[in-house]
């Protein structure tokens, strides 16, 4: 299984790549030792978004189905976590169970939506339209739940102001439970999940399943005529992607202890597309790097020139499409790879 960590579907291979990976991971593990709690918490915020970016990379970059609605699963799981934990509290490790249930709810919603889309042979731009409509519909619905009648048990949905005061993730521990506030504790949990998801997706994409997903992107008719029921493969990919977007939503809710309808709005739906496109949608590593870099730049711009941040995002997307349609980070990685190969050839 581990030999599938490398393969034609993922950039980066050999001792040099994995050496660099170990170095970056080591630096990430040591980072909280040299930083303050606020900055570490802010880094957790960046990490949280990488899961939704990876979900889009899987569905769009590898699978060829442009989903504009990953934020729908983000919001469903975020609200799901809030409703569950506000009602049942955090004792006995329930928050961890709530995380799993909330992600499962998002995945189940994806099964229903994906079934009608893929078995109804909706493809191409129409898939983007349907998924965008779903996320905007959910945003509109949640925004009008301000009245006191909109509650599930003790959890008020709270309309446009969103839901807040859900407990953070709490790990039961002998003596006193460990509460993961948005600093070092949550940092290590999210980092661990990120590394696990990244490596698991590398294995998945270099497996025979990943081969079929890429084949469907390249030529769905040919893939079907090789005997693959492409609808099932598309649906499974969509559900895995939805679960990852849901994980992003739960972690975001846990991080800030709030979730609002705007997390499913137009801007929220568009931003992951930009991160993934700029990084390189058809590669996991490029997506991770691209998302973190663009998020950091976006935050810096928001702080120092707030009104231009979104305009900058738009310009960045246009430049990417014009200069490096496969992604700036992936383009840079391929260029460095070619230089390294030339250097090795000369040395040989």
């Amino acid at each position: 299984m581990f030999r599938r960590l490398e393969g034609p579907q993922t950039a980066g291979r050999g001792p040099a790549f994995w050496g660099l990976f170990a170095l970056v991971l080591g630096a990430a593990l040591a980072y909280p030792l040299f930083s303050d709690g606020y900055t570490v918490g802010n880094t957790v915020y960046f990490f949280v978004w990488v899961f939704i970016a990876l979900s889009l990379c899987l569905i769009w970059g590898y699978g060829g189905s442009l989903s504009f609605g990953q934020t729908a699963f983000f919001g469903i799981a975020g609200y799901g976590y809030g409703i569950l934990t506000i009602n049942f509290g955090s004792a006995y490790g329930f928050t961890l169970l709530a995380l799993v249930i909330a992600v499962a709810i998002a995945a189940l919603f994806a099964v229903l939506l994906g079934y009608f889309m893929f078995f109804g042979r909706i493809a191409g731009v129409f898939l983007g339209i349907v998924t965008l409509a779903v996320t905007l519909m959910l945003e509109r619905f949640m925004a009008q739940t301000a009245g006191p009648e909109w509650r599930i048990g003790a959890a008020r949905l709270n309309g446009f102001n969103g839901m807040s005061a859900m407990p953070p993730l709490t790990i039961p521990w002998p003596g006193e439970p460990i509460v993961l506030f948005a600093d070092v504790g949550l940092y290590y949990l999210v980092l661990g999940l990120l590394v696990f998801v990244y490596l698991a997706l590398r294995i998945l994409m270099n497996s025979s399943f990943g081969n079929v997903i890429v084949a469907i992107r390249e030529n769905p008719e040919r893939a079907e005529m090789l005997g693959y029921d492409i609808r099932k493969y598309q649906l499974i990919t969509f559900v895995i992607g939805a679960a990852l977007a849901g994980l992003s939503g739960v972690l975001y809710t846990v991080w800030g202890q709030y979730i609002t309808p705007s997390s499913m709005g137009m801007t929220a739906a568009a931003l992951p597309l930009i991160w993934v496109a700029v990084g390189g949608r058809s590669d996991l590593t490029s997506t991770v790097i691209g998302t973190l870099v663009v998020l950091a730049a976006f935050q810096a711009l928001t702080i120092y020139g707030s009104q231009y941040a979104l305009v900058f995002m738009g310009v960045l997307l246009v430049l990417t499409v014009l200069i490096a349609p496969n992604g700036l980070v992936l383009g840079l990685m391929n260029w460095l790879g070619r230089i390294a190969a030339r250097f090795t050839q000369r040395a040989g």
Partner: peptide, 12 residues
């Protein structure tokens, strides 16, 4: 089947 227009996976 082999299609009229070659149906290979062009990017692979």
């Amino acid at each position: 089947v082999k299609f009229q227009v070659p149906g290979v996976f062009k990017g692979l």
